[in-house]
């Protein structure tokens, strides 16, 4: 029992430490300010920890982490939206301006190009965000299809459309 538990801990730590950049990038795509990003990061770690037992049985271990992280991120966004809706029932100006501030997606260290990329991604819908993230992460069509739950050919069609949309958005954003 004890060794198994230890193994679980060690496996989890290794997995998380190794994938920190990937998780963090997903957080930046789906959460727009530092505070939310930290919350989402924590939440993804919790989901990974909870889902560890399924990793051993998962047929496609290489995309497992993306599935867990993206599912968490997508529902996180919705939960946060619900919470925000509840807290902005009284439309005072302070609340509204704060919500607007949070849309400053890029951080100050970002190059103009990167900032423009994030700004554009922020305008996509949640599935499109997932697709473009996977594309930028250099996954194959088959892997993307696995993560999204659609056919590889559909991935091609969708990706073409999303890239076009992204290019257009980037044009708008870039000075």
């Amino acid at each position: 029992m004890k060794t198994e538990f230890q193994d679980g801990n060690q496996g989890f730590l290794a997995l998380v430490n190794e994938n920190r950049p990937r998780i963090l990038k997903i957080c930046r795509v789906y959460a727009w300010n530092r505070e939310d990003q930290d919350d989402l990061y924590q939440e993804i770690l919790i989901q990974i920890w909870r889902s560890l037992p399924s990793l051993k049985e998962a047929a496609h271990a290489d995309t497992w982490l993306y599935r867990v992280a993206l599912n968490t991120a997508i529902s996180f966004l919705r939960k946060r939206a619900a919470r925000k809706a509840a807290s902005t029932l009284s439309f005072d100006h302070e609340q509204l301006s704060r919500v607007a501030d949070e849309h400053q997606v890029a951080s100050q260290e970002d190059s103009p190009q990167l900032a423009a990329l994030y700004e554009s991604i922020a305008k996509l819908d949640e599935v499109e965000k997932a697709l473009i993230t996977l594309f930028l992460e250099d996954l194959s069509y088959e892997q993307m299809a696995e993560v999204l739950g659609i056919s590889p050919s559909h991935v091609g069609v969708m990706l073409h459309r999303v890239k076009k949309k992204l290019a257009m958005l980037t044009q708008e954003v870039l000075p």
């Binding site: 989901q47 998962a58 497992w64 599935r67 599912n71 599935v127 739950g149 659609i150």
Partner: peptide, 14 residues
């Protein structure tokens, strides 16, 4: 929930 389901499946569950 099935945390490692595909994105589309998760959305369907939701």
């Amino acid at each position: 929930e099935i945390p490692d389901a595909s994105v589309m499946d998760s959305l369907r569950v939701e």
